[in-house]
């Protein structure tokens, strides 16, 4: 449920770090809280965002929810499979359900994020 090598945000996003790039998605907890995802709105490749900006929208049957980036940078890839198969966010949130890849402008921002262990603790405190 909590891949060890990922980092996590308080908004329930995860990032997987590959050098100066991150792959980003929403956590298992977030997809479960949303319920069946039926629509995903993605940013355009090349768009620049600051940390905590909304980069896209995920809609379940009942809810509309923003996706935030926990790091600043430029979108270098989007998961186009989600346009036709938004359910991937539910089925495989840490794998095929990824949302975007960003080229970070400040890798120091990663220090603000939680480890798997810290995120697990954070969820318990929120509950």
């Amino acid at each position: 449920m909590f891949p060890k090598d990922f980092k996590y945000s308080r908004e329930h996003e995860w990032v997987k770090i590959e050098g100066t790039k991150v792959r980003l998605g929403i956590t298992h907890y977030a997809q479960d809280a949303l319920g069946d995802v039926v629509f995903v709105e993605l940013p355009e490749v090349g768009t620049e965002f600051a940390a905590n900006d909304s980069i896209g929208v995920i809609e379940s049957v009942k809810a509309v929810s923003d996706v935030y980036t926990p790091v600043s940078g430029k979108v270098v890839a989007i998961n186009e499979a989600l346009l036709d198969s938004p359910e991937l966010v539910n089925e495989d949130p840490y794998g095929d359900g990824w949302i975007v890849e960003m080229e970070m402008s400040d890798t120091g921002e990663l220090d603000n994020l939680m480890t798997a262990e810290e995120y697990q603790k954070f969820l318990k405190e929120e509950a």
């Binding site: 319920g35 069946d36 039926v38 379940s60 049957v61 009942k62």
Partner: peptide, 8 residues
């Protein structure tokens, strides 16, 4: 109850 296993 809003859902048991999933709305769809």
């Amino acid at each position: 109850p809003v859902q048991y296993v999933g709305i769809l």
